[in-house]
């Protein structure tokens, strides 16, 4: 299966800009399906970015983050060709990891 994580990390001088899109339902647990039954909460709780063995960004998310979440940030200390490891875990124990190269 294709990865749930799509990432674009671009180094521009000293600063690396990271844009990430994750496929995830981010169900709040408040919405009913067509049969009128509540769809249980299912959402990413933690999303972590590591570069050169160091955490560069950690997101803690609740149910109010939109479906298929998008997040953008920038950090210093990465350069072209470095590995950027991205991993998430959700409230049901699901998880995914990908390692991208900084372009």
């Amino acid at each position: 299966m294709a990865s749930s994580i799509r990432v674009r990390a671009t180094a521009n001088g000293d600063i690396t800009e990271v844009q990430t899109l994750i496929q995830h339902p981010m169900d709040t647990g408040l919405v009913k399906d067509s049969k009128g039954e509540l769809i249980p909460a299912h959402y990413i709780q933690e999303l972590k970015f590591e570069c050169n063995g160091k955490d560069v960004f950690v997101a803690n998310w609740g149910t109010a983050v939109s479906k298929d979440p998008y997040v953008k940030f920038s950090f210093k200390g990465g350069k072209k060709g470095d590995d950027l490891k991205i991993s998430w875990t959700d409230n049901k124990g699901g998880s995914d990891t990908i390692t991208a190269k900084i372009a």
Binding site: V58, A64, S66, V71, F75
Partner: peptide
Amino acid sequence: PDGTLPAIANRLK
């Protein structure tokens, strides 16, 4: 963390 810029974009409900 140290070295990360204080600028974030995301999408909320």
